[in-house]
Design a protein around this nucleic acid. Structure first.
Lengths: 158, 158
DNA sequence: CACAATTCAATTGTGCACAACTCAATCGCG
DNA sequence: CGCGATTGAGTTGTGCACAATTGAATTGTG
């Protein structure tokens, strides 16, 4: 059985491997998204909007946050920046004045075409084949679910 | 063959799965590390120090950054906070006045005992068995290597 | 209907990540 | 040795993540 020292080794921590990979992706995206004037989190928001506004219409900030696992503390300033860059419009919902809906401007909608090549270039940068990416993604989703579950069920204990 | 729309779907993006998992880990660590008064990045720094200072002596900020994939812009303020909390000492190296070495204080060294249970509790939170964690970790390391390699080789192009 | 509880977005404050830059110390080459 | 290039840490500025709080709008219940 491995010792405590063994378990505390940095190179054994999956969280560190995960964190490094996530930041490495950040670097690649930064490079690829520079042309589009987007940061990586902004790109994720745009992905949701490109995907959703076609069949669902304007998206409340709440929904956006659910899909991205982000709260208003992160989204509010981010959306303001997207609005300042002319990619989205934010407006109070008439139906529910608490809610703010986010809509793509023409400029924001058009950006989709310029982003079309990104996923393929990202896939190429990983050097993984599609099947491998797929299986890794599935595992990561399970992991996220398990960790979120743990947080909800053990707000204090083990 | 999948359409562009298909490729741009959020739930197909491995980077998003990775990012979510990384942030989910952050949440669990936040909970577990609260007692120790450490943030998750601070914990990673402590891991390196606990591991290294035994056989290597004081560690320059540079070395710390290489192991954690972080630069001085992140480490300088973080180490200052650790110093303010009495966990480490920072001092200019006598051999090379440019370099600053980081040493654990007694308090910082003792904290290791209290952190000993963390990895096991994290593993439990994932719900994965050790083999599965191991294989995932290996894949992620390959991924990080590939992405870093791409960045170095294609600072502009594809 | 009234009013307490809830919901939603925004704000504030802390900390991390990273680019760009500064400045001093060191290195290396002629 | 002298001096330009490099190295190491720190600082500044921008943006993201998240906790905690605020304040307004809405909902649910008696």
């Amino acid at each position: 059985m491995a010792s405590t020292d063994e378990y505390l080794r940095l190179d054994r921590q999956i969280c560190f491997a995960l964190n490094s990979a996530s930041r490495a992706f950040g670097g690649v995206y930064r490079t690829l998204l520079k042309d589009l004037g987007l940061t990586y989190p902004q790109y994720l928001v745009m992905l949701v909007l490109w995907e959703a506004t076609e069949d669902e219409g304007p998206l409340p900030v709440k929904r956006l946050g659910e899909r991205l696992r982000l709260d208003s503390g992160t989204l509010s300033p981010l959306l303001k920046r997207l609005e300042a860059n002319g990619l989205v419009r934010r407006e109070r919902s008439a139906a529910d004045e608490r809610s703010v809906t986010v809509t793509l401007t023409d400029s924001g909608a058009t950006l989709k075409d310029r982003a079309a090549g990104i996923p393929r270039r990202i896939a190429a940068a990983t050097g993984f084949d599609l099947e491998e990416i797929e299986s890794l993604r599935t595992r990561l989703e399970h992991l996220t679910t398990a960790l979120d579950e743990w947080e909800k069920s053990s707000p204090a204990g083990d």
